[in-house]
Design a protein around this nucleic acid. Sequence first.
DNA 1: CTGAAAGCGCTTACAG
DNA 2: CTGAAAGCGCTTACAG
Lengths: 340, 340
Amino acid sequence: MASATINDVASYAGVSRATVSRVLNHNPAVDPTLRDRVLDAVQALGYQPNRAARRLRAQSSNVIGLVISDIQNPYFISVISGVEAAAYAHQMNIVLCNSDEDLAKERIYLDVMEAERVAGLIIVPTHGTAGSDLNRFQQLGIPVILLDRLIEAMQVDAVKVDNERGAYEAVKHLLDLGCRRVAHISGSPELTTGRDRMQGYYNALAEAHLKPEPRLIRTGDFKTDSGYRLTLDLLDLPAPPDAIFVANNLMTLGALRALRERGVRVPEEMALVGFDDMPWSAEFRSPLTAVSQPTYELGQEAVHLLRRRLAQPDAPVRTVVLNTRLIVRESCGAALNLRR
Amino acid sequence: MASATINDVASYAGVSRATVSRVLNHNPAVDPTLRDRVLDAVQALGYQPNRAARRLRAQSSNVIGLVISDIQNPYFISVISGVEAAAYAHQMNIVLCNSDEDLAKERIYLDVMEAERVAGLIIVPTHGTAGSDLNRFQQLGIPVILLDRLIEAMQVDAVKVDNERGAYEAVKHLLDLGCRRVAHISGSPELTTGRDRMQGYYNALAEAHLKPEPRLIRTGDFKTDSGYRLTLDLLDLPAPPDAIFVANNLMTLGALRALRERGVRVPEEMALVGFDDMPWSAEFRSPLTAVSQPTYELGQEAVHLLRRRLAQPDAPVRTVVLNTRLIVRESCGAALNLRR
DNA sequence: CTGAAAGCGCTTACAG
DNA sequence: CTGAAAGCGCTTACAG
């Protein structure tokens, strides 16, 4: 059985296709009697307008292309959730893509998004994404919203958190508790999030008149395994750190595993603060002190920026910066209530 | 600047639209010279075929509608990830929907999927989803694949794990360790996953000639808060259990919180096994013994079933059942090495 | 092997 | 307020 078309509805209701279309698009200039006949026909036939046809003809779409850089990272669940909720609230739908931090895969998905003529693109760019990859969307009149990470030298709407400040507060907290050798397991330096969090680390050290010690600064890639390996490296140092600030939730998981396997007690022997607070962070062996990001709001805000841009194509470019919040639990050693 | 169309490519290459279309669709019957001219033109103009137009004309789509019941549940990350990977491997895209365990929202999204004329529908049905909600897709020739949960009395392809056996093994493990009062915090009884896991619990008790004790069986809803509340209820019992089997990862999180707040030591004072093994389960205060589901494979298999059904619309209905695996860590008390 | 023509299911000026 | 007609960008018999 094929779907009912607008022609079926029109003949069932005894009107023209144009009238059916008007009713469905809430055009007020339709006689109430005809409107009711059309609605009855729609009901009777179980008619669902074919969106491909509508999109083609109206040259507009209500589909948002959402390109996530690593869908396996649970950080993005809540972000996606926020995008979905806001999109749903405005009758928009999501085409989900996962670039897997792979530039080639991202490019393929960007081609798909262009072929789909999405209404707008919300993207967590991977490392290497250039402005030139995204400019064509702007030229086609398809707004682009950057989420979580910026692309430097690209003027485009974006929503992110204040990574530098979040990291600064985390490290300052450790220093205030008396830690003197605070290590940093950083995120990818190719990403603004990785760089900004490292800058926050530097800022806190500088404020405390502490000199950064290169051996205590380890470059990770935001994935679990790098957190694991780099923590082992830090533990193997002749003079290990007394605290570690880890730049995201997955690497923190790796750090926890390394510390557990080595039998290092947290916070007694090693204080720990992680970027990203997850719903399960309080249940860790040592409840995690963490920099909490408003992830759901991040996703929602991306949709709001997109809608704003759709409504006002020439509005000035806006970057929305949301605040993080330090959630103090036990892994930082605050409860030990001792100055080292 | 508007996108290039097939007409632009045709005139640039000096051929007809039909030839351009043939080249793009890998029709072998095209002269190599013309083919090259067309490909050059595509390149030069940055042409991306309009998918809405293709879909409308060809009456076929490469979009999979993916309806998830609760996107906030991290269990589904990995499932979505598997669907995405398999879809990507076959040049298919995903329209993501989140029913939020809300039947009304699910219905709206099903209408959207119909309007999109998706190639197929992969759905984690919420409680209350009836066969009648999905039959229309079959009638339209749109295959439906059930994921994770079944709809009883509906003959349709599905992929799930052996919930009953997974639960049975978990509870048997606790009984073998000497636990005698094993409680169960169940999932929603309206869902096959909730019912099957409860049945596995009953089976293990029966095999050990133990009588189920109604007060030890608490009905949850697969969300964190119910795990929390019901664990408190169990702890408040005049004769509390010596072990709890919790039916999913979120409720386990709630149980852990309750046990922590009450200062109950796991596994010394309370053994614990949870359904769902998550990447962070080993880092809990007491590393969690858990029933691991092959979530990624679940997602992949759903796509495979869909592709099979697309290729052979009349093949017999298939339900793929994947096995779970009990991951023994510490929360069950196995390492205590004592019979209670 | 190639092109002219029809048509997928809609929306939208246009005329009345 | 309503309908006939054109057309969005493609694909696909059909004829040559």
